[in-house]
Amino acid sequence: GLTEEQKQEIREAFDLFDTDGSGTIDAKELKVAMRALGFEPKKEEIKKMISEIDKDGSGTIDFEEFLTMMTA
């Protein structure tokens, strides 16, 4: 499992990506986040990433899903 410290770091990354503070990361926010990390993702790639992570089919990534992605 994760230490509380690791969870906190992932939470901070999540909050950075969640620019509108909605508690979820949408495609637009993910794209901005990827760019910040030096990637140039295409729209299809973003969609694919979200569909792989987005277990509940909401079209957005919540913290639990993000946590799973970061620790996979």
Rank of each mutant, 00 (worst) to 15 (best):
P41R: 05
D26A: 12
L2S: 02
M49T: 02
E29T: 13
D26T: 13
I10F: 12
E52Q: 12
E12I: 11
K28W: 08
I53A: 09
L30W: 05
F14I: 01
M49R: 03
V32C: 15
Q8Y: 04
V32S: 15
M70G: 01
L16P: 00
T68V: 14
K47F: 10
M69C: 11
F17W: 06
L67V: 05
K28Q: 10
M34N: 01
D56P: 04
K31E: 15
F17P: 00
S51P: 01
E5S: 11
E52K: 12
I25D: 00
G38I: 02
E44G: 10
M69F: 13
G57F: 11
L67W: 06
T24H: 10
A27Q: 06
D18E: 01
I25L: 11
S22W: 03
L37H: 03
I61K: 00
F66S: 00
S22D: 06
Q6D: 06
L16Q: 07
G38N: 02
D62V: 05
E65F: 11
S22L: 03
E9K: 14
F66W: 07
F63G: 01
M70R: 01
I61F: 10
G21D: 09
G1S: 10
L37F: 05
A13G: 03
A72R: 11
E5N: 09
D15R: 12
K28M: 09
L37V: 04
K31V: 15
L67K: 02
V32E: 15
L37S: 02
T3R: 06
E5T: 11
T19I: 13
A33L: 15
A27C: 13
K48T: 06
E29L: 13
F17S: 08
S51M: 09
L37R: 01
G59R: 12
F66A: 01
L37N: 03
Q8R: 09
L16C: 13
T3E: 01
F17D: 01
T3V: 03
T71S: 10
I53N: 07
D20H: 05
I25V: 03
E9P: 04
A13T: 10
T60R: 14
E45Q: 06
K47R: 11
K48V: 10
E64Y: 05
M34G: 00
E5P: 04
I10A: 06
D62R: 15
E52R: 10
D15V: 06
